[in-house]
Simulated scan of single mutants.
Amino acid sequence: MRYTAVQKGEVRLLDGATGTELEKRGVPMRTNAWSGSASLDHPEILEQIHRDYIAAGADIITANTYATSRALLELDGLGDQFETINRASVQAACRAKDASGRPDVLIAGSLSHRGPIATGSARPDSRAIGLDTMAAALREQARLLRDEGCDLLLLEMMYDPARMPLVFEAAAQTGLPVWAGFSARRGENGQLLGFGPGEDVPFAQIISILHDWEVDAAGIMHTPANLVSDALESLRATFDGPLMAYPDSGYFKSPHWQFEDVITPSELHRYAETWIQQGAQVLGGCCGLSPEHIAALAPLKRGPMPENG
Rank of each mutant, 00 (worst) to 15 (best):
F239N: 00
M305E: 15
M221S: 15
A217G: 12
F182R: 00
L154A: 04
L144V: 02
H269F: 15
L131F: 12
R30E: 12
D230Q: 13
I45W: 10
Y271Q: 13
T264E: 11
A184S: 12
D104A: 14
A71E: 06
A142Q: 09
P247I: 02
A280F: 07
A296M: 02
Q81H: 13
T31Y: 04
A99Y: 05
D147Y: 08
A63H: 00
F168H: 12
I54M: 10
G120E: 03
T68L: 11
S39F: 04
H50N: 09
Q205Y: 05
H222W: 06
R87E: 05
T84H: 08
A298L: 06
G120H: 05
Y251H: 13
L152Y: 04
Q277R: 14
D104C: 06
L193M: 10
F182K: 00
S37N: 12
S234C: 07
R114Y: 14
G309S: 00
A272H: 08
N308W: 06
G279Y: 05
I206M: 02
V282F: 05
Y251M: 10
T4D: 10
S208G: 05
I276P: 00
A17F: 08
G181H: 04
L106M: 13
A142M: 12
L289Y: 01
A38F: 03
P265M: 08
L210H: 00
H50K: 06
G190H: 09
A108Q: 01
R70L: 12
A142R: 09
G219L: 08
R123D: 12
P255D: 04
G284L: 09
W275V: 05
M1F: 11
L75M: 15
V282T: 02
N86D: 07
E292H: 06
N86S: 06
T68I: 11
M158S: 07
